[in-house]
Design a protein around this nucleic acid. Structure first.
Lengths: 140, 140
DNA sequence: CGGCATTATCTTGACGTCAAGACAAACGTA
DNA sequence: TACGTTTGTCTTGACGTCAAGATAATGCCG
């Protein structure tokens, strides 16, 4: 079947497992990604939709949709930039901050448990190969 | 960022690249998977939707949808099993046979080119790690 | 200053997928 | 034989995504 087919299967399995973790916090993978990216950004944990888009691999329409839902759930706020009226700024609310901290902790555990079947050497090798593939794909 | 995040990015890149190959033959990844699976099955290249489902990671509703479209395009036929009226049988048409042979050849080339950044040792290590992850996920 | 290309975001319509359940046929057991 | 369970497929409704285009503000250059 080959490595690419296997990679696809593994990806789907991991996605499902991680989705269960997100669901425990009332999130899906899409929402989690946005909140986690905001959380990693320096205080006040705010980025524009465009900045969020470039770090995830999604289009603008998808981003609008994601932010809409998170805003409706009260986890982020969307306001317009005073300096540049084209820009919007998406910022974590207190509630969103608390939620993503809890979800992140849970997620780290899930990821660890998913990788327990590999030794640290194997993980390093896997990661190195994936890194090469990623670089090659993103450069071209 | 960790191996899992990288795996996700690599998966999305590969998916997009392979999708371009499929598109050249008027297919998408979904249709290609079905046709390729039928092609691999022994003559007369026919399987039930359930058999197709278990080898891909999709649900029954998705399978129905995929077969419907391929049938509309004249690439497969759907008939009912004489022995068991619950079963349906999906079979490659001549046209589907020709198309998937061409698409498969093209796809093999694409896959090869995607992996050229890795040595054969690296590919073997990657594959071994993915295999372990796959087994672990599918057993639990 | 005026016009034009650029940048940033949002809108629309279509697609593929899933989960849950509907339906029909086949099987097993009393 | 009759009936409940299991099996195999299809239907429905919702969701996340994308591509293409609309909208609006900005910056640049003549």
């Amino acid at each position: 079947m080959g490595p690419i087919g296997r990679l696809s299967r593994v990806f789907h399995h991991l996605t499902r497992r991680m989705g269960e973790t997100f669901a425990r916090h009332g999130l899906n993978a899409a929402g989690f990604d946005v909140l986690a990216t905001l959380r990693r950004s320096p205080p006040p944990h705010a980025l524009s939709p465009g900045e969020l888009m470039s770090s995830m691999m999604i289009t603008s329409g998808t981003m609008t949709n994601r932010v809409d839902q998170l805003a409706k759930a009260g986890l982020v706020t969307r306001r317009s930039d005073a300096r540049d009226a084209r820009r919007a700024v998406v910022e974590l609310t207190d509630e969103g901050h608390k939620l993503i901290d809890a979800a992140l902790a849970d997620h780290v555990e899930t990821q660890k448990s998913l990788l327990t079947v590999l030794s640290s050497d194997e993980i390093a090798q896997l990661d190195a190969a994936l890194f090469k593939l990623m670089k090659a794909a993103e450069d071209s």
